[in-house]
Write a protein that binds this DNA or RNA. Structure first.
Lengths: 249, 249
DNA sequence: CGCTCGTTTGATATATTTCAAGAATTGTGG
DNA sequence: CCACAATTCTTGAAATATATCAAACGAGCG
């Protein structure tokens, strides 16, 4: 956990800067956003499907995820979030939430009023563009997940998820592929890759038996990155991490 | 097909107006966009995965779709587009395409240079916001597709796809649920719902036998809308069609 | 130490795929 | 408008990946 006095909007500025160059005035405007810092417990829902969200949630430290429940109570996870992610710009901008947002671990967050986000995006085009890019990349990840769930078998799907997670952690400077935390039980993983937890268990064991990964509790070590990439049919292009300021005109 | 002299950017203005009120100056700026009108044949690719797209494509008349090919050549479709859709803002804004964009039928399109789109979005916040909302709603549809493909069985999935298509056609004033065209063979449908064409065939027959729909060639009549909605576990909220200018501050 | 939650394993069930072949429909050139 | 080719649709039988059910095991925790 981050100590209270260290809670700032710096992670947001870093994230936006990644997508578009911000002027000093833009940066100042971001810092001037009226935010509320909060510590949320694992399992806390920031937004429920059907809500009219009043805030967007900047994850300063911790993991969160978004999901829907379909008929018969089956759960589908479609995104995982980590330090620095501006979770759920989407629900809040659209006005009516179409899915749930839940903390995966205890988290430090900054709650930013939707109105303030709309205003800054509108008044400061660079900031708006950067936020737009953020949502565009999330869209790209959704597309990859559709393909992953729709057209890949269990082993490939799971390997792909691990690759993506490792890659994003690295980009966020939160770990290395050599060893990192996936803060999800096999049950959660199964809801992210649309399988049963039983089957996830078997596949994970198989990947381990093949010497590709080693998993104990929620800690994963990648023993053979190339093997994992191969197993996961993984091509990181869709993450658009190599983008340098595409928003710059 | 629209006769050449009737090709204008009006569908784009209508679409943007749906999301954000545009001033006369905004509208004029949109009309002043440097566009190229083209007629594209079914099967034509506007963008290939990996390209650096130079244009975004406004569909004036016709159907298009977006997809990826995963290892072993399996295809996954993740969006269908119809008259008035601004196809692939996403690839063009992100700079590097992460999927293919292909015409499903012969189409009239307006090609708009990416630079012009970036510029108008940046210079005219209302226009930028409206475009952003367009991409946000597409994101919402992606999420629903993930849940649909991941957590629903074949019958539900297919019924859901038909409901969505009917609903969007109606919103675009292109048909009624009572009878409309899905310009896709069963093979294509199978790539959209992640099934085999053989299985799609059987499910379609079953839905027909149950009196829910009637399909002949590529024409579908919905005989029992409530039954189809029930069969498809369909809740249109995720389409955000009832939104009235959420972007208005 | 006992409880709870997560993992592991085995046996069985089933939805969907795969393979294959024939029928129907659509498209094309003459 | 016909004949032929090429898709697309349809159906059946067999194969298989994954789900389901059930039970035991292990680890963290108050």
């Amino acid at each position: 956990m981050t100590s209270p006095e260290r809670l700032t909007l710096q992670p947001l500025i870093d994230k936006l800067q990644f997508w578009a160059p911000l002027s000093d005035a833009d940066e100042a405007a971001v810092r001037a956003l009226p935010v509320t810092f909060r510590r949320l417990k694992a399992g806390h829902y920031v937004v429920w499907d059907g809500d009219r969200p009043q805030h967007s949630c900047l994850l300063i430290h911790g993991f969160a995820y978004r999901h829907k429940i379909v008929r018969e109570g089956k759960k589908q996870i479609f995104s995982l979030h980590m330090d620095g992610d501006l979770v759920d710009l989407q629900n809040s901008l659209l006005g009516r939430a179409d899915h749930n947002v839940e903390m995966l671990t205890d988290c430090d967050v900054a709650l930013i009023p939707v109105d303030a986000i709309r205003k800054i995006a509108f008044d400061r085009p660079s900031v708006g563009m950067a936020m737009w890019y953020e949502t565009l990349v999330e869209g790209s990840i959704f597309r990859e997940w559709i393909a992953n769930i729709g057209r890949r078998d269990a082993r490939t799907r799971i390997a792909h998820l691990i690759c993506e997670f490792a890659m994003r952690l690295k980009a966020a400077k939160l770990g290395t592929p050599e060893g990192f935390m996936i803060p999800m039980s096999q049950e959660w993983i199964s809801d992210a890759v649309s399988l049963t937890s039983v089957h996830v268990n078997r596949v994970l064991k198989a990947l381990q038996a093949d010497g590709v990964i080693h998993r104990s509790r929620r800690w994963i070590e990648v023993r053979d990155w190339d093997g994992l990439v191969e197993a996961g049919d993984f091509n990181p292009a869709y993450l658009h991490l190599d983008q340098v300021h595409p928003a710059a005109i």
